[in-house]
């Protein structure tokens, strides 16, 4: 198939590439509960799109992928709507602060270096922590002979989560779908707010930081964290898409084409989570932030923008 002209961004791209890219990102999004911006952004850039269009269009595409994957996760009982709605508020507020930080760094003139350095540290830290924690949990399960499967979940970080649940900061709420009897509203908002800051600061949906925080800090089972994160991303990424579109950074036609592939990939990814236990999903998640770190490191060292 020949290249298609996209009049909004002025780019000429083969729609099959876009659909295949969307399929791969959708597969990952459905399985891990992430938008996949750390791959989609550089990939769109490599296809010849300007950075501003790559960032804005990727956000619109994330909305589409998240809708498909979250609907499938909801059918599987993996979405806590109450938690997702509360988190969306914190994420939007955090994203605004993250965007302001970017503006400050732009004025100071060192935005590229600071953002690159912060993202590398964060990506590596998340990966190393998740390798350590999921290996520890899997080893403990093997030793004790317990075989947790499906949505049954446990983490080696359980003692910290229990301590967080005991913090009495009014108002306390319960999340029966996630199996949390009592937790401070402020803890949830803080987790979402931090995720939002990373989203505004580093771009994309920041699922790579929010999904692990939901598991380790809030104590949400991994399958529910994946589904709820996707539901939450629909709201925050829709807001981000609207905001970027107002600035002329979204080529919606490209996002619509990518979404045709993502629709089927996200379904397959979401269904696949049924066959893996929580620690295995978390262990499989590890390469994702490392790929992001490698891409940023490459641009930093080579001076090439992907």
């Amino acid at each position: 198939m020949i290249a298609m002209f996209f009049p909004i961004s002025g780019a000429e791209i083969n729609p099959v590439y876009l659909a295949v890219l969307g399929f791969s990102i959708g597969l990952m999004g459905g399985f891990f509960g992430v938008g996949g911006s750390f791959i989609a952004g550089p990939a769109l850039r490599a296809l010849g799109l300007d950075w501003n269009f790559a960032v804005g269009t990727d956000l619109a595409h994330i909305v589409g992928t998240s809708v498909v994957a979250a609907k499938r996760h909801r059918a599987l009982g993996n979405v806590d709507l109450r938690l997702g709605l509360i988190m969306a508020l914190g994420t939007i507020a955090g994203a605004e602060l993250g965007a302001q930080l970017i503006q400050m760094l732009k004025r100071a003139g060192n935005v590229n270096f600071v953002v690159s350095a912060v993202s590398i540290v964060i990506y590596f830290s998340v990966s190393i922590f998740m390798i350590w924690e999921s290996s520890l949990t899997l080893r403990a399960q093997r030793k004790s002979g317990r075989k947790k499967s499906g949505k049954e979940d446990e983490t080696a970080f359980r003692h910290v989560t229990s301590w967080i649940h005991r913090l009495k900061l009014w108002p306390m709420i319960s999340l029966p779908v996630s199996g949390i009897k009592s937790i401070s509203l402020w803890t949830i908002l803080l987790v979402a707010f931090i995720g939002g800051i990373f989203s505004g600061f580093l771009g994309g949906g920041a699922g790579y930081i929010r999904m692990p925080m939901m598991v380790y800090v809030l104590g949400v089972p991994t399958h529910l964290a994946v589904g709820t994160d996707l539901f939450e991303i629909i709201i925050s990424a829709s807001y981000g898409t609207f905001s970027h579109a107002l600035k002329g950074n979204v080529d919606i036609l490209i996002a619509l084409v990518m979404q045709t592939g993502a629709a089927i990939g996200a379904q397959i990814g979401a269904i696949s989570t049924q066959y893996f236990a929580g620690p295995k999903i978390r262990l499989a998640f590890v390469p994702l932030p490392l790929i992001g770190a490698a891409l940023v490191l490459y641009t930093l060292l080579s001076g090439h923008k992907l």
Binding site: K71, R72, T241, A255, L256, A263
Partner: peptide, 24 residues
């Protein structure tokens, strides 16, 4: 541009729901 921004959100949400129904 405001109408376009609104259309971006509506189109991507609408298409996602339709495609999800087709794939299901």
């Amino acid at each position: 541009i405001r109408l376009y921004a609104l259309l971006c959100v509506v189109l991507i949400l609408g298409q996602s729901i339709v495609l999800e129904s087709i794939t299901t």
